[in-house]
Design a protein around this nucleic acid. Structure first.
Lengths: 355, 355
DNA sequence: CTGAAAGCGCTTACAG
DNA sequence: CTGAAAGCGCTTACAG
């Protein structure tokens, strides 16, 4: 297959010929294996440079018997939210694309509401041979513990969905949360202009552990400040995530503040707010929240939710695995952070959205 | 490389062993080449079924000496608009990923304002060996002529950016235009609510040939109708695309209709409207248009443009080439239409947008 | 520290 | 209609 014109030969064979060594020695140099004299090594390196040698990945994978073990550690899909289904789909798509190249993916799940399940899964993971890890570092302390162990074992790890900065991860793939909240504020303000109050709601059992909700809130507030918007911001933290708790709290809030024009929910649980508004026949409040969940889409279709912000959770999973693959198998550099686009979903474009 | 557990062997070798033939014969059957008795053929086919044989793509491409020639035919990047830079980038990205597998991409460009340049390029293309074509069928008549020739030569073709339905293309990759315009209307109405008129503008030298602008307009109008919105719709076709012509027409329109609240431009030339609004210090008109061009982004940053709708032009190019690759090289089925998401870009999220 | 040889799973002339 | 053999560009024991 003469795809490159010019040079007759350009693979390991040609390098070996020019260096007057065997291809085995060339291979050792290419993979930086020991057992080559410095002199031959440098000579070969020079020739590689000169030839601008690009290894043939096809041949490499075909010949290699090396098997890679990747591990994922993400929240289980719960009855409460199907959010993590999307990243898992992405992971499985990546898996199907690369499994023929000798990659095995071991899947571990933890309970978002239970740190101990996270810890016990991390223990299990380290019992086996692992070449790379894709994880959602939801619990900070516990994640730090785990990645310390990974560092000792020289196992690279990729974060998705939320980041722990400066922890030497191979990369972070997910949203930039501040701007995400900032956009939420823009949409809220755009909806009600400068009249009326806006309500920001965090709904989670783990609000205090989940730094990422807070970061969105900061972005949300920053928008109003930066743009000198006069809307008053009301805030509510809801730690009981069942519908009744959410509803009664909302009821109280809306009674106290009769002039709330828009509500921003910092995560995918916006559907419970939507449910409340619909049941209460409240139509004059604009609602903005997160994520392409079936429930949320239904409320989008009914005009109860105006905008959903979504950050391609499926692609996060896909790219997470691919980052490991690129780095460990193809030996390609991957960029330290890959921020997902901040997508706006409405009733008019959700049909064409791709997670 | 024992990646599959279970069966000891599973490739052509094992098939050959079971069928009691040589691997060459197996290869003939796999590729549906002639020269195999029906009996042996059916026998081999049955074994392939039974084994659920999946060819090893790596080995196939490595061994094959076949070179594929893909051709692209898209508008040239002009001083008027850099729109086609993005699809070209996507094409080049795909090229860099697959060129090592024996794919060559020949690039042809035509002048969007000159049908004859389109025709003359199509003539050139057919002079060489071509395995697949990626094209923007901007001029319908001329495109039909060309694809008829392709059909005769059994050359598959992919459409991007705009479609000519039921023309037996391998696939269409691009926007669904009606909903794109529909979303534009929603954003316009959302911006001004039910007060004021909306202005829809087509700016193109080739309005009459460009069915896709019309389709967006239909979607735009449909939104107001479907939702019983009372905003009056004013329409303008601008066939002279230079700034002065656009400006004088706008000046006239805005004088006649003092109560226009929002303007929707059906293509990337929204920047010239933005330029006019800025120069005229008109601040009370919301502006919505298309595409992530540098000029447009500048007006987005200045709050002159409120929303840009964008449909991942780069990805269109990338996926267009990949569709050919998947179908012709990997022999995988590709779906007939791939509608791009209808993305909404604002000042708050443009930084994270990926074309 | 280095090399000869076999092999990865296919495809491709060539011979019969 | 069918098969034996070489080869794609690498990697991997194994031997020295």
């Amino acid at each position: 297959m003469k795809k490159d014109d010019g040079l007759e030969l350009s693979g390991v064979k040609e390098i070996a010929r020019r260096a007057n060594v065997s291809i085995a020695t060339v291979d050792r140099v290419i993979h930086n294996r020991s057992g080559v004299s410095n002199k031959t090594k440098n000579n070969i390196l020079a020739i590689i440079q000169e030839l601008d040698y690009q290894p043939n990945i096809l041949a490499r994978r075909l010949a290699s018997k090396k098997l890679f073990h990747f591990v994922i550690l993400i929240p289980a899909i719960s009855e409460e939210t199907e959010f993590w289904k999307a990243p898992l789909n992405g992971i499985e798509q990546a898996e199907s694309e690369i499994k023929q190249y000798g990659i095995k993916i071991e899947k571990y799940f933890f309970d978002q509401n239970d740190k101990r399940s996270f810890v016990s899964q991390t223990k299990k993971i380290l019992k086996n041979k692992v070449d790379g890890i894709l994880m959602a570092p939801s619990f900070i302390e516990e994640s730090l513990e785990f990645i310390k162990a990974c560092q000792d074992l020289k196992i690279p790890y990729v974060f998705i969905n939320s980041d722990i900065p400066s922890q030497d991860s191979l990369c972070y793939i997910g949203p930039e949360l501040f701007h995400s909240g900032y956009l939420g504020a823009r949409l809220a303000n755009f909806a009600i202009k400068d009249h009326g109050k806006v309500l920001i709601i965090n709904i989670s059992k783990e609000i205090d552990n989940y730094h990422h909700l807070l970061r969105k809130e900061e972005g949300f507030r920053a928008y109003f400040q930066d743009n000198n918007k006069k809307n008053e911001i009301i805030k509510a933290d809801i730690r009981q995530t069942d519908y009744n708790s959410v509803a009664s709290l909302l009821d109280e809030l809306l009674t106290t503040h009769s002039d709330i024009g828009a509500v921003f929910v910092t995560n995918s649980r916006v559907f419970s707010v939507a449910q409340f508004l619909e049941k209460s026949s409240i139509k004059n409040i604009r609602l903005i929240g997160y994520d392409f969940l079936q429930e949320n889409i239904e409320y989008l279709k009914n005009d109860v939710i105006d905008f959903l912000i979504c950050q391609k959770p499926q692609e996060q999973g896909y790219r997470g695995i691919m980052a490991l693959y690129q780095n460990l198998v193809l030996d390609v550099a991957v960029s330290k952070t890959y921020f997902m686009p901040i997508d706006i979903i409405t009733k008019e474009n959700y049909l064409f959205y791709r997670n």
